[in-house]
Every structure is written in structure tokens, then in C-alpha cells.
């Protein structure tokens, strides 16, 4: 899709990261370094929550930045820089997931049906229920339960949740990154949040194990 000159001008004027990227396009190494420093924590964090492994997440993040550099000549400011960056990240994550699946090294819980299942939840529940059924969850434990709950989402729900929650992308931008319609994103996020609530609510309210949903 071609980007009109007025759109490019609007994003160039409104987004300092776009201006940095345009400098990268002119082979400005410093601009690239600055961009990388601005986004490296967020990208690594996103990939960590997506793939569940820090070292793999860092490798993927480096791949993302490498792709940004290699794609610099073709870059057209048709959206916010972050949107373009996370589109690359989404592609890299998808490729990685496919590669891992082919090598049978999948450590993630990936349920293509989109339906929430209780397996990771069982693990979380089991960890919690062995302690005090009615105790107050401590912070580390909550973090662990939340990680398990996020990991229990399917790939698309997880990506939509992370972009929405931590990268503050609106439905329109998420749709652009994931190549969906905004309505599909709305539906995707509502199901993801329902699934999260279903896992987290018992812990948040009572600190107890919930019944695992029937498959």
C-alpha cells in the first residue's frame, strides 16, 4: 500500500522516532544506536513474554533490530515508528514460532484453537494450592501466576495483550501490526481478558485454586 506524502509528512512531524529512522535511512549510525537504545528493553521484554525464554528473546530482539537496519532503505513513514517496529517483531516472533515447531523445540504453550485450556493454569494452581488455600498472595507468587496466565493465552491473544497493556497500542495500531481488522482485535482482546480473568480471579479474590475449565 502506498503512503501519501501528506501522511508521511504528518508522521515525520509528529513522531521523533520516525525522524530518527529517516536518519538511519541516510546511513546515520548514531541515529540507529539511539533508536535501538530507546526500544531495546521494550522489544526484549515483549519477546520474553512472547517466547518465555530470555536468551531466545534477546536473539530475536537482535534479529528485529538487524531487520530494521536492513529495511532502512525501503522505510516509508506510513505509521508511528513503534507500529512499524512491532510489525517486524510480530513477523520475527511468528517465524521463530514456526521454526521452533518444525524442530519440535516448542516450550511455549501454543493452542491454535484460541481456546483457553487449564494445563498451565493447573501448574499455577498446583504451585499455589500446596501452600495456604486462603492466604494472601505475595508479589513474587502473583508475578509467577500472572506469567503462567499470560503464557496460557494463545500466541495471538498474548501478542495483542502485550501490545495493548505494555506498549499502549490502540486497537487500530494492533490491527496494523497483526494484520487484522480493529473489530477482530476487539474480539481477540475481549477473549484474552476473559481468559486472564478466569485464571487470575480466584487468586486475586481468595488466593485459592480455581476449577480448571472443561476441555
Amino acid at each position: 500500500m502506498s503512503t501519501s506524502q501528506s501522511t508521511a509528512a504528518r508522521y515525520t512531524a509528529g513522531d521523533p522516532d520516525v525522524r530518527l529512522m529517516l536518519r538511519v535511512q541516510q546511513d546515520d549510525a548514531e541515529a540507529f544506536e539511539e533508536l535501538m537504545l530507546r526500544y531495546q528493553d521494550r522489544v526484549v521484554s515483549l519477546m520474553t513474554h512472547l517466547v518465555g525464554k530470555r536468551d531466545l528473546a534477546e536473539d530475536l530482539a537482535q534479529d528485529i533490530f538487524l531487520r530494521v537496519y536492513r529495511s532502512r532503505k525501503k522505510y516509508v513513514p506510513g505509521a508511528k515508528f513503534s507500529t512499524w517496529l512491532y510489525t517486524i517483531a510480530n513477523n520475527v516472533a511468528s517465524n521463530s514460532r514456526r521454526g521452533l515447531a518444525r524442530r519440535r523445540e516448542v516450550n511455549l504453550v501454543a493452542h491454535e484453537s484460541g481456546e483457553f485450556t487449564g494445563n498451565p493454569l493447573d501448574q499455577a494452581a498446583l504451585a499455589a494450592s500446596g501452600l495456604m488455600p486462603t492466604r494472601q498472595l505475595d508479589k513474587a507468587e502473583l508475578s509467577q501466576v500472572v506469567q503462567m496466565a499470560v503464557a496460557a493465552l494463545n500466541e495471538r491473544q498474548r501478542m495483542a495483550v502485550l501490545l495493548n497493556k505494555f506498549e499502549h497500542l490502540g486497537y487500530e495500531e494492533i490491527a496494523q501490526v497483526m494484520e487484522l481488522t480493529p473489530a477482530a482485535v476487539k474480539s481477540l482482546l475481549s477473549r484474552a481478558r476473559a481468559n486472564l480473568r478466569e485464571v487470575l480471579e480466584p487468586y486475586l479474590e481468595q488466593g485459592t485454586k480455581i476449577d480448571t475449565p472443561e476441555k
Binding site: L142, V150, R193, L200, L204
Partner: peptide, 9 residues
Amino acid sequence: RAWSALDAL
């Protein structure tokens, strides 16, 4: 509440 719990990540 569930959404806010994600801050614990």
C-alpha cells in the same frame, strides 16, 4: 482487576 494484575509481570 485481572488486567491490573498484569502489572505484576
